[in-house]
Amino acid sequence: MTIPDEMLAAYVDGELEGAERARIEQAIALDSQLAQRVAQQRALRDRVRGAYDGVLQEAVPQALLQAAKLGAPSGPAQVIDLARVRALRSRSGQGQRQMKVRRYSIAASLVVGLMAGALIQRLSAPSALTEFHDGSLLARGALARALNEQLTGGAPATAAIRVGLTFRSRSGNYCRTFALSGSRALAGLACREQEQWQLMNLVGTEGAGSAANGQNLRMAASSLPPALLQAVNEHISGEPLNAAAEAKARNSGWH
């Protein structure tokens, strides 16, 4: 009986079961040459694996332990990338991304679940500032009011919610950055979607440098947390609106 190399390899790799496995084992028992080929395959596997086994015994470097910790204080700012999930969902018609999209959309309702849980908890207490609706996080309450009404620089430095940049996104919608001060130190980006402010990104600003702290948070582009700045760069089309254009946009209901 001739047994191809691939079959022997599958046997050595533990991929064969039941009758197939039994057939090979029987053949090995009857054929010393075949037994030698199997031994050779096993030896190769053991040798290759053995060369890397030492890594398992090494102490894992501190930087990696730190990187593996959720929301580690010294790690990068926590970013909830809602835009990504949303963008992928909206592209779900494209076959090329189909498989990925399926994965994303199943998970979409969990976006805020794990990592972001703590941030969202901060957001939702004491009065709800956000609502999770159909896979999107929407601004509510005081946050929605501030995004609707507040003009950049129009709020006192001590305000709990301060709106920063206003700009048009690549799809033509208005987007605004905002910051929550005090114990809920968060900065975010919200864009207009179907008459609502949809949160695209949230960045926890604690530990991300004192510049992002409380009333010192001036929402000039230069003081945006880097992760948020990156989100702005991904969305923005042209330049941020000046005061006059912003007021005009507000007065026309952000259409």
């Binding site: 890594v55 090494e58 332990l65 959720l70 929301g71 679940g113 794990l114 849980g117």
Partner: peptide, 24 residues
């Protein structure tokens, strides 16, 4: 941080040696 997140984190930590070997 909630229970599931803690559990997930400890599972990731446990996988670090193997992930290092893979990266190596």
């Amino acid at each position: 941080m909630s229970g599931p997140a803690d559990l997930l984190q400890s599972r990731i930590l446990e996988l670090l040696p193997k992930l290092r070997r893979f990266a190596r």
